[in-house]
Computed example of a mutant assay.
Amino acid sequence: MEIVNANCATLSNYEVLKHLQKVKESKMKHKGQLATITYETIRYLENAPCNDQSPQNITECLKALAPYNLNKTEKLMIINTPPTTALEIQLMIEESEERLTEEQVEQILDIITRYSPHVIKDKVEENEEIE
């Protein structure tokens, strides 16, 4: 077998979680390692930010990020692990200091806050701890 295009498509954690949940709920029972891998991956992803996401939020977030000329991998990292600080954005976006101004970084953080329920939850919990 030959791989024609290794990077044909990438899946977000949300898409992987939903697919594995369908596999788990299907009538075909999987045995052995596949069942273990499916179970462990679902367990991990249910505690990740993707558990709170929806297809609409992901789509709207990607549309809002379009003007920043991010590549597919950068967008995927932002969706899978929503950054909450400028430092995290620097780690996710290659050459971010040359490609983005400080104002653009703040705009990206605002977009992520708007479309990522997980980030909103974390900020509310932080504010409650401070009080």
Rank of each mutant, 00 (worst) to 15 (best):
M1P: 15
V4F: 11
N5F: 03
A6C: 00
N7C: 07
A9P: 13
E15C: 02
L17D: 01
L17S: 01
L17N: 02
K18S: 09
Q21A: 01
Q21V: 04
K24G: 02
S26V: 03
K27C: 08
K29C: 10
K29E: 11
H30D: 03
K31A: 13
K31S: 14
G32S: 07
G32D: 04
I37L: 12
I37H: 10
E40N: 13
E40H: 10
I42L: 02
R43N: 14
Y44M: 11
Y44C: 11
L45T: 01
L45M: 06
E46Q: 12
N47G: 14
A48V: 05
N51A: 15
N51I: 13
S54D: 03
I58L: 07
I58H: 00
E60N: 14
C61Y: 08
C61G: 02
L62V: 13
L62N: 09
A64V: 07
L65K: 02
P67Q: 04
Y68L: 09
N69L: 03
L70Q: 04
N71M: 05
N71G: 11
T73E: 08
E74D: 07
E74S: 13
L76C: 08
N80D: 06
T81C: 12
P82D: 02
P83V: 04
P83Q: 01
T84S: 11
T85M: 05
T85L: 06
A86N: 14
L87S: 06
L87M: 12
E88Q: 13
I89P: 02
I89Y: 02
L91T: 07
L91I: 08
I93N: 04
E94P: 07
E98K: 15
E98Q: 13
E98C: 06
E103H: 05
Q104N: 06
Q104C: 03
Q104A: 04
V105S: 08
V105C: 14
Q107L: 09
Q107T: 06
I108N: 00
L109M: 03
L109Q: 01
D110A: 09
I111K: 01
I112H: 01
T113N: 13
R114Y: 08
Y115P: 02
S116A: 08
S116I: 02
H118Q: 09
V119W: 00
V119Q: 00
K121N: 13
D122R: 05
D122P: 03
D122Q: 07
K123T: 06
E129R: 10
E131Y: 09
